[in-house]
């Protein structure tokens, strides 16, 4: 923006001919070109991964590698599809876990965010900080205690148990965003409603929720990303092939060949499959959640 303005200012002092105009706009074109280059650089790794997943088995293991597949093949996807219990089982488990994690995260942080932003809680700051506890602890070290507790509660091998872990990981960020979003809602709106006789729950549902939908989308999206990709917790909690999630299979592709070598094609097919839903959801909900992130993080 500032670059454009400076050009405009300087342009006035110059004689108006074509070359000069181009010259004067050089910064604009340079910036445009630079942006395109940046976009290409950001997209290339993903494109390369998708292309690699479409190579034949031999081409995927070729040294030196090829830039793009010389002949399309879905071999890698077939291997991934047929892997152990079958890809659909793992994707199903991952989706179920993510869905519960999203529901839990939203349920907990919408109410807590409302309370923290709108009610005179005793020791509010301390409470908030306490709820953010998970932020500073390496959760890797908490997994074993949680696992032993879940074994007693019969929550191991279940998507609910795993979803609880994912919710615990995701809670601090989500709560932060939700609280800030509730704080950003103008107070007079609610006051008017309360004067009209609405109770606090009605105020939450009727007044606040419509305003914090973007933040909820943000929270849901990030909960999805966390849950869909989380590896170590799933490894600890799940004991049977038919309860495994996608990230466990992704890691298995690294030691897939008979004596533990990497199946490069299957690995990139796995990366592609795990990346696609994230990007799809992001692009679909972009409008909401950019706003949500902004209202939640930048006050």
């Amino acid at each position: 923006m500032s670059a454009d303005l400076s050009i405009a200012m300087r342009a006035e002092t110059r004689p108006r001919n074509l070359i000069a105009t181009l010259w004067a706009s050089r910064a604009k074109y340079l910036v445009g070109a630079l942006l395109i280059v940046i976009c290409v650089v950001m997209l290339l790794p993903l494109v390369a991964s998708v292309l690699a997943s479409l190579k034949s088995t031999t081409e995927a293991a070729a040294v030196p590698p090829t830039y793009y597949p010389h002949g399309l093949s879905v071999d890698s996807y077939v291997r991934l599809w047929d892997y152990q219990a079958g890809l659909q089982v793992y994707v199903g488990n991952s989706l179920a876990t993510a869905a519960i994690a999203i529901a839990l995260t939203l349920g907990l942080t919408v109410t807590a965010g409302y309370a923290l932003a709108r009610f005179p809680l005793p020791g509010k700051e301390a409470l908030f900080v306490f709820l953010l506890l998970a932020l500073i602890i390496p959760y890797q070290a908490l997994l074993t205690p949680i696992f032993l507790m879940f074994a007693q509660l019969k929550l191991t091998n279940s998507v609910l148990g795993l979803a609880i872990i994912h919710t615990a990981i995701q809670l601090p960020f989500s709560l932060y965003v939700m609280r800030n979003s509730f704080e950003a809602v103008p107070k007079d709106l609610e006051e008017a409603a309360v004067v009209d006789g609405a109770n606090s729950l009605q105020a939450l549902v009727l007044i606040y929720l419509p305003s914090v939908v973007p933040a909820m989308v943000t929270v849901a999206l990030f909960a999805f990303i966390t849950s869909w990709n989380e590896f170590l917790g799933a490894l600890v909690m799940m004991n049977r092939q038919d309860t495994f999630t996608l990230p466990l299979i992704l890691s298995a592709a690294r030691t897939q060949t008979s004596i533990g070598g990497t199946d490069w094609g299957m690995l990139q097919a796995g990366v592609t499959i795990s990346v696609i839903p994230c990007i799809a959801v992001y692009l679909l909900l972009q409008k909401y959640y950019v706003a949500g992130l902004l209202s939640g993080a930048v006050k």
């Binding site: 839990l104 907990l108 109410t111 009610f119 005179p120 709820l131 506890l133 998970a134 615990a168 107070k187």
Partner: peptide, 29 residues
């Protein structure tokens, strides 16, 4: 608004699920 005992109670009620969750699944472990 809600700047009274009832407000404090309501607030605690709303924050309770999250608090319980963190107590159980983060603070306890």
């Amino acid at each position: 608004m809600y700047n009274n005992a009832r407000g404090r109670f309501l607030g605690l009620l709303y924050v309770a699920p999250a608090l319980l969750f963190v107590l159980l699944f983060t603070a306890y472990p």
